[in-house]
Structure formats: C-alpha cells, structure tokens
C-alpha cells in the first residue's frame, strides 16, 4: 500500500510538480495521414509499367466502346475476290480467307474479349468474395463446408469444365453463357486468397475494439474486416480478367466458344489455322491483339501486387 493514499480519495493523482514535463518526439500533426492505399498510390505512380498498362487499357476500352472511331470498314462486308490479299488499297493489314478486312475485325472483336473478361471477373469476384469472406470470418463448420466445396471446384481445371458446359449448351452459346461457364469454376482461387487474408485480419485489435463497442458481427465483417483484407483480392482479380480473356479465346479456338457469327479474336484465330502456311498474318495479327490486351492486364496486376504486398515490394 503506498503511504500517500488517503482514505477519503477514490483515486490518487500525483501533484503536477511530481511529473516533470519532457519534450516528447515532435509529431507532424499537419501531415496527411497515410494508409495502405495512399502508400500504394505513391508507389504506383512512380512506375512506368503502371502508366504503360493504364494507357493500353484505356485505349482498349475506347476501342471496345467506339470501334467506329478507328475504322470505317464494315468487318462483316467481305468480298471473296479479295481473299488473302495483302495490305494496300484502303486496307491497313490486308484481308483474310473470306476477304474480310483483318484490321476492322480486330477492332470490332475487342469488345467481345473485354466483355467476357469483365463479366467473368465480376462473377469470380462476387462468388469468391462471398464464399471466401463467409469461410474466413465465421470459421467452424461454415469454413469446413465452403472450403471443401471450393476444393471440388478447384480440382476441375476451369477450361476443361467450360469445355464440358459449352458442349452441352452449344445451342445457347453467347457472351453470357461462355462467361458463366468460365466464371463458375474460376472463383475458388479468389475465395482462398480472401479467406487466408481474413484469417489474418480478424484477430486484429480494431476488430476487438469494434466488438467491444457492440458492433454486430455482420457489420464488423463488412465495415472493418473486408476493407482491410481486400488488397490481395484486387491483385488476383486483375489477373483473372486476363485469364478470362485467354479462356474465351481458347474455347473459341477449340470451337466450343462463341458462335462463328460473333466477332471474336479466338474465332478469327481458329478460322485462320488453315492459312498458316499461305497467309500467316491472318493468324498472327489477331493473336498479337489478344496478347497485348492480356499483357496490359497482367502488367497492371503486377504493379498492383508490388504496391499492395509489402513482401513483393521488398523483392523488387
């Protein structure tokens, strides 16, 4: 018992002259607070790869939205007399076997690839976030069931699964069905990443603080845990957009993708196979368009990973 406790006083407070005031380290109070996102932005804007990929993606989006700005040639107007002719006479890249303008078909095929990529990504992100968040946050039997379910979907390579679905749904082939066929099997990777991140975040002090204040579990998940564990999901989502575009092209190439009436790079590449010896540019040019599009999203994903994952940043 300290000797200077008085019985009529609830708490002992030391007189002010007993606690000497020392100059503490000065805090820059007027500086902007930083967090993961402002740090990431500061890192990202210094990297040329970010600006190159963003510029390419912006260009791709504009081409997809307004193809008529880039070509005045109708991609469906094909003259057999022009079959396999080289560039020249108002055609930038020449003609394919059917005598259609290659350049114009590449321009008009952009929106197909991009829409499939976006729809699949939306699907994969929603399913992955939903299942991953539930499994990681609630744990127990919810986690056990959802993780096994994810394992099952993960065990079927998603292109093979899409091949089976699209062979059954061949009469209904469209941008929507193909996106569904790819997305329904591609989500477990996202769910796994989010689950692992939530397991890490959910024991943080701010979660306990929120619980102590009486915030409901669901609200803690949505307002506190999810925003703090979404960073790796953003990285994997950007990359899954690229994979979805490749998957659509592969399925179209295999002949179980989009109907041949839909303009798509995969369809054009598939039809150009027979001309590989005689007129290789009918095959190479759409392939380049496809690869550049995929590359821009992969680069963006790479930049995002470096910016959001401190470990990846250290390894650069």
């Amino acid at each position: 018992m300290p000797s200077n406790t008085r019985s009529n006083q609830a708490h002992y407070v030391a007189p002010i002259d007993e606690t000497p005031l020392v100059a503490i380290d000065s805090v820059k109070a007027d500086g902007k607070p930083t967090n993961l996102w402002t740090d990431a932005w500061r890192d990202v804007r210094k990297r040329p790869m970010f600006w190159i990929s963003s510029a390419l993606i912006l260009l791709i989006v504009i081409v997809a939205l307004f193809p008529a700005l880039f070509t005045s040639v109708d991609p469906r107007y094909c003259q057999l007399s022009l079959s396999n002719q080289g560039p020249g006479d108002g055609s930038v890249l020449g003609y394919n076997r059917q005598g259609c303008d290659i350049y114009s078909r590449i321009i008009y095929g952009t929106s197909t690839s991009l829409s499939v990529g976006l729809i699949v990504t939306f699907l994969v992100a929603s399913l992955g976030i939903f299942f991953g968040a539930l499994a990681g946050f609630y744990g127990g039997w919810v986690d056990a069931v959802l993780s096994r379910l994810g394992d099952i979907f993960f065990s079927i390579p998603y292109i093979l699964a899409a091949v089976v679905i699209m062979s059954v749904l061949s009469q209904y082939a469209s941008v929507w069905t193909i996106s569904l066929a790819i997305g329904i099997f591609a989500w477990p990777a996202t769910a796994r990443v989010l689950r692992a991140e939530i397991l890490r975040v959910k024991n943080a002090d701010f979660v306990m603080a929120a619980t102590a204040v009486g915030v409901t579990r669901l609200r803690i998940l949505i307002r506190h845990v999810l925003p703090n564990s979404i960073a790796p999901v953003i990285v994997i989502t950007t990359i899954s957009l690229a994979s979805a575009i490749v998957a659509e092209a592969t399925l179209s190439f295999l002949g179980v993708g989009l109907p041949s009436s839909t303009m798509s790079w995969g369809n054009d590449i598939s039809q150009a196979q027979v001309d590989l010896r005689t007129n290789p540019q009918t095959l190479i040019l759409p392939s380049i368009a496809l690869s550049v599009t995929v590359l821009s999203f992969i680069m963006l994903g790479e930049v995002a990973r470096d910016a959001l994952d401190p470990k990846a940043r250290a390894q650069r």
């Binding site: 092209a249 190439f253 196979q273 095959l283 392939s287 496809l290 690869s291 550049v292 995929v294 992969i298």
Partner: peptide, 9 residues
C-alpha cells in the same frame, strides 16, 4: 500473356 495456341502456331 501469350496464350498457348498462339505460342504453338
């Protein structure tokens, strides 16, 4: 970024 069928061709 290169799809396998592009590499193959």
């Amino acid at each position: 970024s290169l799809p396998v069928f592009v590499v193959a061709f």
